[in-house]
């Protein structure tokens, strides 16, 4: 158990460090990379809890997909940090209140009697976290699960529709049309004599330059 505790506190320390660096570092690329580190360590903590499916899903979805797109955008855009920092003191009271509320809520949840840490019976070796989660998601919680996925789908489509600008001047090709092109459409074969008489050169200047 001591070994587990040691790993937990190491991971927790790294997680806290990474989280703080995300909001304090000046370079947005560094911030995104520290967020990646935070996700990784969080996955490690979940692995300690024997929640391997959630841990791997966290790495797969957030590190492998979401953060890649974040980095992609952060690297592509030229973000002016000074402009972002302009309203810092105006927003501070509001943000501070929300942050405090969240902290209080978290403390209440963790110290409340319904969420008090209980000792979980250790599972047998062939217990599959993944299968168990899948069973619960697709039987007991089928409707909420489907609802959540529909909400996500709507959000995705809404994001695309809101940003879609139908540009008139953009040039694109229709691959189906390209594939269907026949030889007759593009190519014209012209009959020519095999030997064409070369016109005799009568340019005294050119001759002079040569000699």
């Amino acid at each position: 158990m001591i070994f587990n505790d040691f790993i937990f506190y190491t991971l927790a320390a790294i997680l806290l460090f990474a989280g703080i660096r995300v909001i304090t570092t000046r370079n947005p690329v560094y911030a995104a990379l520290h967020l990646v580190l935070a996700f990784f360590t969080a996955a490690g903590i979940w692995l300690l809890l024997e929640a391997e499916f959630l841990a791997i899903a966290l790495v797969l979805v957030y590190v492998g997909a979401v953060m890649v797109l974040f980095l992609f955008v952060v690297m592509m855009l030229d973000i002016n940090l000074d402009k972002l920092r302009e309203g810092f003191w105006d927003y501070l009271p509001m943000a501070g209140t929300i942050g405090l509320l969240m902290a209080v809520e978290m403390v209440m949840i963790l110290s409340g009697k319904y969420f008090a840490p209980t000792t979980v019976a250790s599972k047998s070796a062939d217990y599959s976290n993944t299968a168990e989660l899948g069973r619960v998601l697709y039987t007991d919680y089928l409707l909420p699960f489907e609802l959540a996925s529909v909400v996500l789908l709507v959000a995705i489509i809404a994001a695309i529709v809101l940003t879609l600008r139908d540009r008139q001047d953009s040039k694109s090709m229709n691959p189906a049309e390209q594939v269907l092109v026949k030889k007759q459409d593009r190519l014209r074969i012209v009959k020519m004599d095999a030997v064409v008489e070369t016109p005799s050169v009568e340019d005294p200047k050119a001759d002079k330059e040569k000699s």
Partner: peptide, 17 residues
């Protein structure tokens, strides 16, 4: 491990970094 396939997918997606 039971989630072997997920592990591989996670690792290959990390490779892009």
């Amino acid at each position: 491990i039971d989630a072997g396939l997920l592990y591989i997918l996670a690792m290959t997606s990390v490779a892009v970094y």
